[in-house]
């Protein structure tokens, strides 16, 4: 099975280029502006984009993304709106793989099979659902993703044991999303060393490319992890930057120059 994610990863490798994945919450601050944010991200050089379907209980998200989720839900957005939005984006950004990110209750409630089928039909190429580990066998999430040519993206973190790395390595599809909260801002060499060690053990068990997210805020950060992962992830930073602007125009320009600055 190959899909747009595989082609993108192959291309990055061929060009010897480090990839960048950006994250947005669909409908934040509203649907038209989140569409613009995506287009600015694409224009500025994002290689992959995560589209988060908002959920009332986003267990693995920090305050920025949590607040964005709840703010969007207050506007009355529905999952069906998110599908329409994603489909529109996918048709405009043919070169950029789009992934849905959300929590399992959303696909579960939608019907896992329907969710996978409709995601693929909308032009998405992968799902990131943090609260369905691959060994939770009660729901056929993993198999349904594969059956619909979607990569189920799994996550590893420094708390992961070797056993878990081995297990995720077994199921890994597309790439594995590594999170490392090591307070990299003003990082000391020792923290980078810890990260290096973590990523090295992940490599031992995981044979697909790796993405790494940890609050990247500068080109130096990207430089320092270039050797550790194929893709850097910019998560809540995009929302923080958007919120720091005085006007929509300024916010969008800030996002654009931030992303350009990372390349």
């Amino acid at each position: 099975m190959t899909n747009k994610i595989d082609r993108k990863l192959a291309q990055l490798k061929q060009d010897n280029r480090h990839g960048l994945m950006a994250h947005i919450v669909i409908g934040y601050p509203n649907l038209p502006v989140s569409e613009k944010i995506i287009l600015f991200l694409a224009e500025a050089g994002a290689d992959l984009i995560e589209l988060q379907i908002p959920f009332t209980d986003p267990l693995a998200d920090g305050p920025t993304i949590l607040k964005a989720n709840l703010d969007v839900l207050r506007t009355g957005i529905k999952v069906a709106d998110c599908f329409r939005f994603a489909e529109k984006m996918a048709s405009r950004l043919t070169d950029i793989p789009l992934l849905f990110m959300t929590y399992i209750n959303i696909p579960y409630n939608y019907g896992l099979e329907n969710f996978c089928r409709d995601s693929a039909a909308a032009g998405l190429t992968g799902l990131i659902v943090p609260d369905i580990p691959p060994d939770e066998k009660d729901e056929p999430y993993h198999d349904l993703c594969l059956a619909h040519n979607l990569h189920p993206i799994y996550i590893l973190s420094p708390s992961s044991t070797q056993e878990r790395m081995k297990l995720i390595g077994h199921y890994a599809s597309g790439f594995v999303y590594c999170t490392a909260r090591v307070g990299i801002t003003g990082a000391r060499e020792s923290q980078i060393a810890g990260l290096r060690e973590f990523m090295a053990s992940v490599r031992k068990y995981v044979k697909v490319p790796l993405s790494l997210g940890f609050g990247i805020s500068s080109r130096e950060h990207v430089e320092s992890i270039r050797e550790l992962a194929e893709i850097s992830v910019v998560g809540s930073k995009v929302i923080d930057i958007y919120n720091s602007g005085q006007s929509e125009k300024e916010s969008l320009e800030k996002i654009s120059s931030f992303v350009r600055g990372l390349r």
């Binding site: 943090p130 369905i132 580990p133 009660d138 996550i155 708390s159 992961s160 044991t161 878990r164 999170t179």
Partner: peptide, 20 residues
């Protein structure tokens, strides 16, 4: 952790080692 179809361990990966 399953009670019929209910229960389970639908937790983010970073929590799994602690739960184990």
């Amino acid at each position: 952790g399953h009670f019929g179809p209910y229960g389970g361990r639908y937790a983010p990966e970073m929590l799994i080692p602690a739960l184990v």
